[in-house]
């Protein structure tokens, strides 16, 4: 697995390189946004770790340029923790956002999730199982402990959007457009209501969620690992 790291801090580049190499990733590091975009084109990495505060081009712009020609998973690493920065980066096409300082385990877990999602040769299973929860994507059926869970079409569409993007941080805007349609994007109260309904029906506890995690002000993430 080849990882391209774009960060203008030599120390963080070194720390990332060493840590990732210890996990048998092949690591290439560059210090500017331009080199990052060119690097994605030339090296075709499996994962891009991208800092936002770059000396030449802003990281969000780098995401936009990369997305013009590549679907490589992008994880943003930034000290910026404002929701607007996160949303901008995710809406530009980033897959995930990790705030500095971060623990290596967390970054590695996010990286694994992103890489798994990007596996093209692994066909999406028609039936997904998360513990006692079973989702049959072909028949659009959801059962919990063998009992059918009755979902409205909107609730099902929301669930489908989440489970088909496991581990990915999905922004409010993205979810609204995907579930409600192109004309939507700011109606976060709809989303909040439906996520609450979904959690209730699926038996997920909002205070310690095992299925859907809320990223305040940014969006939602499906965190459950599929079983078997």
């Amino acid at each position: 697995m080849k990882v391209l790291v774009v960060d203008d801090e030599p120390q963080i580049r070194r720390a990332l390189r060493t840590s990732l190499e210890a996990h048998d990733y092949e690591v290439v590091t560059v210090g500017t946004g331009e080199e990052g975009v060119v690097g994605v084109a030339d090296l075709a990495p499996d994962l891009l770790l991208l800092d936002l505060g770059l000396p030449d081009v802003d990281g969000t712009e780098v995401i936009r340029r990369v997305r013009a020609f590549s679907e490589v998973p992008i994880i943003v690493l930034s000290v910026r923790e404002a929701q607007t920065d996160k949303v901008a980066a995710l809406d530009a096409g980033a897959d995930d956002y990790v705030t500095k300082p971060f623990a290596m385990e967390e970054l590695l877990a996010r990286a694994r999730a992103a890489l798994r999602r990007a596996q093209p040769d692994e066909p999406t299973q028609p039936i997904l199982r998360f513990g006692s929860l079973e989702i049959d994507l072909a028949r659009r059926l959801v059962t919990r402990e063998g009992e059918a869970v009755h979902l409205t079409p909107t609730e099902y569409a929301l669930l489908e959007a989440l489970v088909t993007n496991p581990g990915k941080l999905l922004t409010h805007q993205w979810l609204l457009r995907r579930v409600w349609g192109q004309g939507y994007g700011t109606e976060t109260t709809y989303l909040r209501t439906y996520v609450r309904m979904l959690r209730k029906k699926l038996g997920d506890d909002a205070s310690s969620p095992a299925l859907i995690i809320t990223e305040p002000g940014v969006g939602y993430r499906w965190v459950a690992e599929p079983a078997g």
Binding site: E9, S19, L77, V79, K100, P101, E105, L108
Partner: peptide
């Protein structure tokens, strides 16, 4: 945060038992 990020990444990496340094 920037130096803290390098420090934390380094420390957590060293503590990571699954990594082979």
């Amino acid at each position: 945060r920037t130096p803290l990020a390098s420090i934390k990444a380094g420390v957590t990496s060293l503590l990571d038992e699954t990594a082979h340094h």
